[in-house]
Simulated assay, not measured.
Amino acid sequence: MLLGIGHGLLAPPTLAGTVGLIPALAGSAAAVGGLVQQMTGALGGFFVGVFPHHGPVNMVLLMLGWAVCGLAAQLVLFRVVLRR
């Protein structure tokens, strides 16, 4: 339930920010945003299948790895925005 609430609060402003940057390219931006979401989900599903499921430690490490990737992407985004 909390995941659904969080997604509902974060997804609309994110998509609006993606397509609102250059209004003439809104359709292309929405397509690329959807592609990135689908590919990230596919990679996540692949890595969940690759790691052994013998205990919760592997899943915790996988989730921690994805969290670190998200944090790194956010830091790169902040750095790019601050340059402008």
Rank of each mutant, 00 (worst) to 15 (best):
M1H: 08
M1A: 07
L2D: 06
L2V: 15
L2T: 15
L3D: 12
L3T: 12
G4S: 06
I5E: 04
I5W: 00
G6H: 06
H7T: 14
H7K: 04
H7N: 10
G8N: 11
L9Y: 01
P12M: 05
T14R: 07
T14S: 10
L15I: 15
L15N: 05
A16Y: 04
A16T: 12
G17K: 00
G17M: 04
G17Q: 01
G17H: 02
T18N: 13
T18L: 11
G20K: 05
G20C: 10
G20Y: 01
G20V: 05
L21W: 03
I22N: 12
I22Q: 07
P23D: 01
P23Y: 02
P23I: 01
A24I: 01
L25D: 07
S28K: 14
A29D: 02
A29C: 01
A29L: 03
A29M: 01
A29F: 02
A31T: 08
A31D: 05
A31S: 09
V32K: 03
G33K: 08
G34S: 11
G34W: 02
L35Y: 10
L35G: 13
L35E: 06
L35T: 15
V36K: 08
Q37V: 13
Q37P: 03
Q38H: 09
T40Y: 02
T40M: 09
G41P: 00
G41V: 05
G41L: 07
A42P: 00
A42G: 11
L43S: 15
L43Q: 11
G44M: 04
G45T: 03
G45M: 02
F46H: 09
F47I: 14
F47Q: 10
V48L: 09
V48E: 10
G49V: 02
G49S: 10
V50L: 08
V50P: 00
F51M: 14
F51Y: 12
P52C: 05
P52E: 03
P52F: 00
P52H: 02
P52N: 03
P52L: 02
H53E: 07
H54Y: 00
G55D: 08
P56A: 15
V57P: 03
N58Q: 10
N58A: 15
N58L: 08
M59C: 09
M59Q: 13
V60T: 15
L61S: 14
L62E: 02
L62N: 01
L62D: 02
L62K: 02
M63S: 15
L64F: 10
L64V: 13
L64E: 04
G65Y: 00
G65A: 06
W66D: 08
A67T: 14
A67E: 08
A67V: 14
V68Y: 00
C69D: 04
C69E: 06
C69T: 06
G70P: 00
G70C: 14
G70Q: 11
G70M: 06
G70T: 09
L71K: 12
L71T: 15
Q74F: 09
Q74I: 11
Q74R: 14
L75Y: 07
L75E: 06
V76M: 06
V76G: 06
V76P: 00
L77Y: 11
L77D: 11
F78Q: 13
F78Y: 15
L82W: 06
R83M: 08
R84S: 11
